[in-house]
Every structure is written in structure tokens, then in C-alpha cells.
Design a protein around this nucleic acid. Structure first.
Lengths: 145, 145
DNA sequence: TTGCTTGTTGCGAAAATTCGCAACAAGTCA
DNA sequence: TGACTTGTTGCGAATTTTCGCAACAAGCAA
């Protein structure tokens, strides 16, 4: 899933932010490392390439890229945070509390919900990424919840 | 919102867990401190009463009571965790990313969603507590999302 | 290309959270 | 009531995440 670097860079600069090698490295790392990447994994990866890149920068850049909707934050079952590329079409996760598996949920299923919140509560739900927790097919029988 | 101590204690013992003064103190603290209590606030509160009670215990007990469905975990807008009493009738939150306000959402609105996930994906969504992020009435105009 | 402005980074320290293990004590059973 | 079992706690250290600030460098303009 290669990201369109020049497009992203243009977008950042247009908003008055800077494109730094650190940001590019971290973005590449998330892109390569896959679907739900922890800050620590990102640090390991980029630190090998740029040993002076600090942990603080990793956290800051992950937050920053999430605010810019370039990355999306994923809540894992254990409560920790991970990140992944935020595609143009958002998708969502069903996270199994037993086996930690991730099921992807198409965006469409949330749109009705979003509309309902809008009309009933005048609240604009940000559905760029949502995680639901529970038990998947394989685990729902064994787990006595 | 006073909790039924004896009922909770009975429930814990029945499951083979112990009722310790630490656990009772921490539960009381969450109960008194209100709707979305941070671990730090709990620590401050109980530490005044029981100075030897450690931070580690606060975190452990909060996790534990959440697993027992006595407390509920709340995701705040900044990504941090807070806790609150888990009532028999679950409720949910619309969290405003701009002003941090919490809107309560009745349980009923999520039941249809839960049923849909069940039939379509054979996934049993745990709807004991769900938070949605976005922008509330007051902030949705000013925030240029 | 050169210099300025100011957004970013690196570093070290602080704060938040988790872990391991020995000491402790809640609940049980005689 | 008095021991025993084993779930819990406290402590200190490790890990994770955040913070403050001075040095740095990306992007802009001349």
C-alpha cells in the first residue's frame, strides 16, 4: 500500500506545515509495517535508518499525521493505541477481545448511524475510524461473556 | 450515585475474588468523583485516606473492576482513559473533540447496530460502553473539519 | 543562492503506566 | 478461633508517553 508522497507533501505544505525527513520516514514505516502499527514498532524501524530520531518525535509525528487525517488511530483490545494509513475510504474494525483478531468493516455500515446522530443529537460524529470490541465467530462460543 | 457495596462484594466473592479495603476505597473514589475519572484523580483521592496504597494498585484495580463490569472504561478525546461506574443500563458517549464535552447516548440507539453486526458478520459487539468522537452542536460550525 | 522566520527536532527529565517478586492478608475449612 | 491457601498488595525498577527548551533546518522571499 504505497502512499502518494508528493500529494501528501503538497497537502502539508499548503496547510503551513513542513515536510521533514523524519515525517517521511515515519510515514513510510507505518505504510510498510502494515495494518495496526505500534509506536514502538515504528521507532524500532526508523531508528535503524536514522539513529538520532528520538522516541518523542515518533509520538509527536504519529499524533500530527493523525490530526492531518493521513494516519488513523486504532484502539487495540488491550486499550493501547496503534496506527495505520488512513485511506480515502475509511474503514472500521471489529476487534476481538479474546483472540485480538481484526475484522474490517466497510464504511457504508456506519453512515446510517452517523446520519441518525446528526439528526437526533445535532452531533457530527467523526467516523474516520471507529473500533468496536467484542467476540468474533470463533471466540463467541468459548468465551462465556 | 451510591453503589450497592454488599451486592458487589457478594458478586466478587462468588467469582473467587477477594474483597480488599483497597478495592473498596478505589470503587468509592470512582463513585464519588463522578462521570469520567482519571487514574490520577483516583490515586490522589485514595492516597489521602490510605497513604501506602500505591499507584500500581490503582491501575490494577481499575482494570480489574472493569473486567468485572463494575466499572466502565471511557475513551477521552485526547486518547486517555477514564473510568466510571457501570450501571445496569449501559450508556454511551458522544465526545466532542473541540470542547471535550460529553453527551450521553441511551443504550437503545446501539441495539439495532449490535443486531446488524451479529447477523451480518457473526460478531458479538460488546456494547457495554462505546464512545464516539466528533463535534457537538456548539463546536461543529466553528471547527472547520 | 543567501538569509530569515518559525515550525520541528533532539535531548534529558518528568510523568504515566506496567511488571516482577516477596510479604501480606481475605476467605475457607477444620 | 486458628492455621492454610492463594489472590493481592507494595515496592522499586522497567517501560511507555509526554514535556520544556535550545539548536536546527524547511520553506519563503529577495
Amino acid at each position: 500500500m504505497p502512499h502518494n508522497t508528493t500529494e501528501i507533501n503538497r497537502q502539508l505544505r499548503k496547510s503551513g506545515y513542513r515536510v521533514t525527513p523524519q515525517r517521511q520516514l515515519i510515514l513510510d514505516a507505518v505504510c510498510q509495517l502494515g495494518d495496526h502499527v505500534t509506536p514502538d514498532a515504528v521507532y524500532d524501524h526508523v531508528h535503524r535508518i536514522a539513529p538520532t530520531l528520538s522516541r518523542a518525535t515518533v509520538y509527536r509525528v504519529l499524533h500530527f499525521l493523525t490530526e492531518q487525517h493521513i494516519l488513523a488511530m486504532v484502539h487495540m483490545a488491550d486499550g493501547r493505541l496503534a496506527y495505520e494509513m488512513a485511506g480515502p475510504e475509511p474503514h472500521h474494525h471489529l476487534v476481538c477481545r479474546s483472540c485480538d483478531s481484526l475484522l474490517e468493516l466497510p464504511h457504508s455500515v456506519l453512515l446510517a448511524f452517523r446520519r441518525a446522530m446528526d439528526t437526533q443529537y445535532d452531533f457530527e460524529v467523526d467516523v474516520s475510524h471507529v473500533s468496536f470490541f467484542g467476540h468474533c465467530t470463533d471466540c463467541r462460543d468459548s468465551a462465556g461473556a
